[in-house]
Lab assay of single mutants.
Amino acid sequence: MDVFMKGLSKAKEGVVAAAEKTKQGVAEAAGKTKEGVLYVGSKTKEGVVHGVATVAEKTKEQVTNVGGAVVTGVTAVAQKTVEGAGSIAAATGFVKKDQLGKNEEGAPQEGILEDMPVDPDNEAYEMPSEEGYQDYEPEA
């Protein structure tokens, strides 16, 4: 019985440690998101679009440190934060509304985080759909 109880105690310690790591990862992701939003706020009209992409990228980098179902929630929060940063930029006159959601080359930025393969159960990952990809044929 002692062996059984000791095993359960060790398992509990492992769960607590994993929860603490997840909590730490979420806190880091939130900190990076805040950094990115402050970065966007300090940019001029020309830099705002690039700044919004930076927020998304920093958040995406930190999301990889967070495991399990938390990833889905962090990704949703990050996307809403990026959308909010863009709205703030438009409201303050840093950028025109028609410039939001495009990178410096004018290509749409939507789907940055949505296409990231995420499995809350950590069982399997699927690649994003290939609808947006084109076949590449090298020139002879």
Rank of each mutant, 00 (worst) to 15 (best):
E137Y: 02
E123Y: 05
E57M: 11
Y125L: 09
K32E: 00
E123H: 06
N103I: 03
G7L: 15
V70F: 05
K21P: 00
T22G: 07
K102M: 06
D135N: 12
V40F: 12
D2W: 05
A69M: 11
A29P: 00
V3L: 08
M116I: 05
L38M: 09
E46R: 01
M127S: 08
E57F: 09
E126I: 05
V15N: 00
V74H: 04
V37M: 07
T44G: 11
E110F: 09
G47L: 09
D119Y: 11
Y39D: 14
A11Q: 00
M1E: 00
A17M: 10
T81E: 02
S9G: 05
E105I: 09
A85L: 10
L8T: 00
G73K: 14
L100P: 01
V26R: 00
G47R: 13
P138Q: 13
V37L: 11
D121I: 10
G7R: 09
E126K: 09
E61Y: 14
V40I: 01
K43H: 04
D98T: 07
S42G: 11
I88Y: 14
H50T: 11
P128M: 03
S129W: 06
V95C: 10
K45P: 00
A91M: 11
K45G: 08
G132M: 14
A19S: 01
K10A: 10
G106H: 11
Y39E: 02
K96R: 06
Y136Q: 14
T22L: 05
K102F: 00
S42K: 08
T72H: 01
V66F: 12
T75I: 13
K10C: 04
E131W: 04
S87P: 01
Q62T: 11
E130I: 08
D135V: 06
K23L: 06
K80P: 02
K43R: 11
G132R: 05
E139A: 05
P138Y: 09
T54K: 14
A17Y: 03
G132P: 05
A89G: 07
E61G: 03
K32Q: 05
Q79L: 06
M1W: 00
K60Y: 12
K43L: 04
D121L: 11
E104R: 12
V49S: 07
A27M: 14
G51I: 15
A90C: 11
G68C: 14
E139D: 07
M1N: 00
V16T: 09
K12D: 00
E28S: 05
E105V: 07
N65T: 06
E28H: 00
P120Q: 08
G84D: 07
V48M: 12
A53M: 11
S87W: 02
V82E: 03
V48E: 01
L100R: 01
A56S: 06
V15R: 00
A19W: 13
E105A: 12
E114K: 03
T64Y: 15
A69I: 15
F94E: 04
Y125F: 14
F4L: 10
E130Q: 12
V70M: 09
A91C: 12
V55A: 03
V49P: 03
E131G: 03
M127W: 12
Y133T: 08
N65R: 05
E28Y: 07
V15W: 14
D2K: 06
E20V: 04
E105Y: 15
A29Q: 03
T64I: 07
Y125E: 13
T44P: 01
T59D: 00
P128I: 07
V15H: 00
G68N: 14
N103V: 12
A19V: 10
P128Q: 06
I88H: 05
K97V: 10
E131S: 11
A124Q: 10
E114I: 10
K21S: 08
N65E: 08
V26Q: 00
A90L: 15
E130A: 13
D2V: 03
T72P: 00
E28C: 06
T54I: 12
V82T: 03
A124L: 11
Y133C: 13
K97R: 07
T72L: 15
Y125D: 08
A76C: 09
F94D: 05
K21L: 13
V15G: 04
P108E: 10
L100N: 10
Y133W: 13
M5W: 01
G84K: 07
E137W: 06
E139W: 09
D121A: 07
P117R: 06
S129L: 15
E104G: 03
F4I: 03
V55M: 12
Q62L: 05
K80F: 13
A78M: 14
K58Q: 05
K58R: 01
E83T: 13
A56V: 13
S9C: 05
G84I: 09
T44R: 01
A53L: 04
D115L: 07
E126G: 05
E126M: 08
D98Q: 07
V74F: 14
T33I: 07
V74M: 09
E110K: 02
K34A: 11
A30L: 15
T59F: 12
P120C: 10
E46A: 14
A124C: 08
K23E: 00
L8E: 00
V3A: 06
G67Y: 15
P117D: 06
Q134A: 12
T44E: 00
M5R: 02
G36S: 10
E83M: 07
K34I: 08
G31D: 00
G93F: 09
M127D: 00
V77G: 04
E123Q: 07
V82M: 07
G93C: 10
A124F: 09
F4K: 01
G36Y: 15
V48I: 14
T59W: 15
Y136A: 09
K80E: 03
G84P: 02
K21A: 07
K34R: 13
K32H: 07
M127H: 13
A11G: 02
E20L: 01
M116Q: 06
V82Q: 06
